[in-house]
């Protein structure tokens, strides 16, 4: 899927660069706290649970469920209304904001807790977004 131009473009920082490198290479990279074993997001080089730097980057499964969303009905550059702004819950625990593709943008089609899978979608040569689509076979 090609994205429409005009969508706000994220700019990686030293603390988030690995995440954006990951999506560019088709990997959803999360971090895990080595003290508690709990995964976290957004990226940072220390654990939000314990404050230590005992953290590891790992590749998430890309499986998620639909946690909540709105369907926006007004025009925004880069988007064709109506479009859903969603929050998904990753299998590993953390939640992230995203869009749901390959799915009608309606309350009937977008059912809370429906299984989803990551769909890496390039914005340009450097930035790839982690969008989600209904899981195959679901």
């Amino acid at each position: 899927m090609a994205l429409e131009p005009g969508r706000p473009r994220p700019e990686p920082t030293p603390e988030t660069k690995h995440f954006w490198e990951g999506t560019k290479n088709g990997k959803l990279l999360l971090q895990r706290c080595g003290d508690t074993g709990k995964a976290y997001f957004p990226p940072r080089p220390f654990s939000p649970y314990t404050g230590t730097c005992n953290v590891q980057v790992f590749e998430a499964s890309g499986r998620a469920t639909l946690h909540s969303y709105v369907i926006h009905h007004r025009p925004v550059p880069g988007f064709k209304p109506p479009y859903a702004i969603a929050v998904v819950e990753l299998e590993e625990g953390p939640r992230m904001m995203t869009n749901i593709i390959d799915c009608p943008q309606t309350p009937d089609a977008l059912v809370l807790d429906m299984p989803l899978e990551v769909a890496f979608t390039p914005m340009d040569d450097d930035i790839t977004l982690a969008l989600f689509r209904p899981a195959k076979g679901a």
Partner: peptide, 11 residues
Amino acid sequence: NGQFEAPFGPM
């Protein structure tokens, strides 16, 4: 917010 929410179309 700019990296992990804005790209998904909030206004």
